[in-house]
Amino acid sequence: MNQAVHFITCSTLDLDAARRFYVDGLGWQALVDVPGEIVFFQVAPGVVLGLFDAVKFADDLGDAGATGVSGLTLSHNVESRTAVDRVVETLSAAGGTVRTPPRDGAFGGIYHAHVTDPNGLIWEIAHNPGWRIEPSGAVVLA
Rank of each mutant, 00 (worst) to 15 (best):
Lys56Gln: 14
Ser70Ala: 13
Ala138Met: 13
Ser136Asn: 15
Ile133Tyr: 01
Ser70Glu: 13
Leu91Ala: 14
Asp33Ile: 01
Pro135Ser: 09
Gly105His: 10
Ser92Glu: 15
Asp117Thr: 04
Phe40Arg: 06
Pro129Lys: 03
Tyr111Asp: 07
Gly62Ser: 10
Leu91His: 14
Gly62Glu: 10
Ala106Gly: 15
Phe107Asp: 11
Ala113Pro: 05
Pro101Gly: 11
Val43Pro: 08
Val32Ile: 13
Pro101Trp: 01
Val5His: 02
Trp123Thr: 03
Pro45Asp: 15
Leu74Gly: 02
Glu37Lys: 09
His6Met: 08
Ala44Met: 09
Gly109Pro: 11
Val78Pro: 05
Val34Glu: 11
Asp14Trp: 00
His76Pro: 02
Val140Arg: 14
Asn128Tyr: 10
His127Lys: 03
Gly120Thr: 04
Glu134Val: 03
Val87Ala: 12
Glu37Cys: 07
Leu74His: 01
Glu124Met: 01
Ile110His: 03
Met1His: 14
Leu121His: 07
Asp16Glu: 13
Val139Glu: 13
Arg103Ser: 14
Asp24His: 09
Ile133Phe: 02
Phe7Asp: 10
Gly96Arg: 11
Ala113His: 06
Val69Met: 04
Ala94Asp: 06
His112Tyr: 13
Gly68Trp: 03
Thr73Ser: 06
Leu51Trp: 07
Gly96Ile: 10
Asp33Ser: 12
Val55Thr: 12
Asp117Asn: 09
Asp53Val: 08
Pro45Ile: 09
Val78Asn: 01
Ala54Asp: 10
Glu134His: 14
Val48Asp: 08
Ser80Cys: 05
Glu134Tyr: 06
Ile110Gln: 15
Pro35Thr: 01
Gln3Asp: 12
Ala4Ile: 09
Val87Glu: 13
Ser11Trp: 07
His76Tyr: 06
Arg132Ile: 00
Asp24Glu: 15
Trp123Tyr: 09
Gly27Ile: 11
Arg86Phe: 08
Val34His: 08
Ile38Gly: 00
Gly46Lys: 11
Asp16Ser: 04
Cys10Gln: 05
Glu124Leu: 01
Phe107Trp: 15
Asn119Gln: 03
Gly71Tyr: 00
Val98Glu: 13
Thr67His: 05
Arg20Pro: 02
